[in-house]
């Protein structure tokens, strides 16, 4: 039956050659050709050069910061993002639609604008920095600042991935568990959480992947001190400015390989959660 429908569809609707041809041509020109330029450039770099670039302490420090800060930020987002998604779906309160709309702000706000706003807030003289200064907490121009910026950037990924899954939760399961004598925390722990876990991991991975590549919002608040608060994308730019194209290519290939593995993991997780949740790496 299914194949019959496919064959019929193929023969009836026009425009297959035109639309697919144009799609493949445009994709090749804009995405595939430039990306292959990167990989061909990488292929001409010797193995020892690869190792040498990656073993540079400055690169290692940036790797550690980029991954460490992205991981912490994704954890913070997973925790607060799930609370926010839960409140938005299950609770009714005035201003809920406004809050729901504002969650997408990090998607819509240019990263450079987010960067300067966060830096101004968390600088020692800023609205928030001033409050933290007496506590001995410095956020701007430290690793903490990088985490704050990456948390801002990643928040919508977790909320938007979890929201549709929470909406789809079958209330009868909770009622069944309740009538069997489960308490609320037991239901949350044993009924709700396992249902949400694949989506939560997807949201976490999306926020993590986005945070590793993020540039605009971080470079202002991080202060960019070599070996201390430099992130990996910034190091690529620094190498480009020094005309070290091989070095920049090595770092880019490393980053793309990691994002590709994360993409595969995300696809797998999304299949686990039944394709629900539609937040992308926007």
């Amino acid at each position: 039956m299914a194949t019959h429908a496919i064959i019929r569809r193929q023969s009836v609707l026009p425009g297959f050659g035109l639309s697919l041809g144009y799609t493949v041509l445009y994709l090749s020109l804009i995405v595939l050709l430039p990306l292959s330029a990167l990989f061909l450039r990488a292929a001409s770099i010797s193995w020892s050069r690869f190792v040498e670039t990656l073993a540079d302490p400055r690169v290692l420090a940036a790797l550690k910061l980029s991954f460490g800060a992205a991981f912490v930020a994704a954890c913070v987002n997973a925790l607060f993002g799930s609370v926010i998604a839960w409140v938005l779906v299950r609770y009714r309160f005035p201003g809920r639609r406004f809050i729901d709309a504002i969650v997408d702000l990090p998607f819509a706000l240019p990263t450079a604008v987010a960067g300067i706003a966060l830096t101004t807030l968390y600088a020692p003289s800023g609205w928030i920095g001033r409050l933290l200064e007496p506590l001995g907490l410095r956020v701007a121009y430290t690793e903490l600042g990088v985490i704050v910026a990456l948390t801002f950037i990643g928040l919508p990924f977790v909320v938007r991935t979890l929201q549709p899954v929470i909406e789809d939760l079958n209330p009868e399961m909770e009622e069944a568990a309740a009538s069997l004598g489960a308490r609320r925390y037991q239901i949350v722990r044993h009924v709700i959480l396992p249902e949400l876990l694949p989506a939560l991991l997807t949201g976490f991975a999306l926020a993590f992947a986005r945070a590793i590549g993020e540039y605009g919002s971080v470079v202002f608040i991080s202060g960019n001190m070599p070996n201390k608060t430099e992130i990996l994308p910034l190091l690529i730019i620094i190498k480009l400015e020094q005309f070290d194209f091989a070095g920049a290519t090595v770092l880019a290939v490393l980053m793309i390989s990691i994002s590709f593995m994360l993409l595969l993991a995300i696809n797998y997780l999304q299949r686990l959660s039944g394709g629900r949740g539609r937040a992308g790496l926007a």
Partner: peptide
């Protein structure tokens, strides 16, 4: 094809610029 269409979202913006420089 669908995965390739999504590729630019998975690439760091800095790398998106770098590939054109290369």
């Amino acid at each position: 094809l669908i995965t390739l269409i999504d590729m630019p979202f998975a690439v760091s913006p800095v790398i998106s610029g770098l590939i054109y420089v290369l």
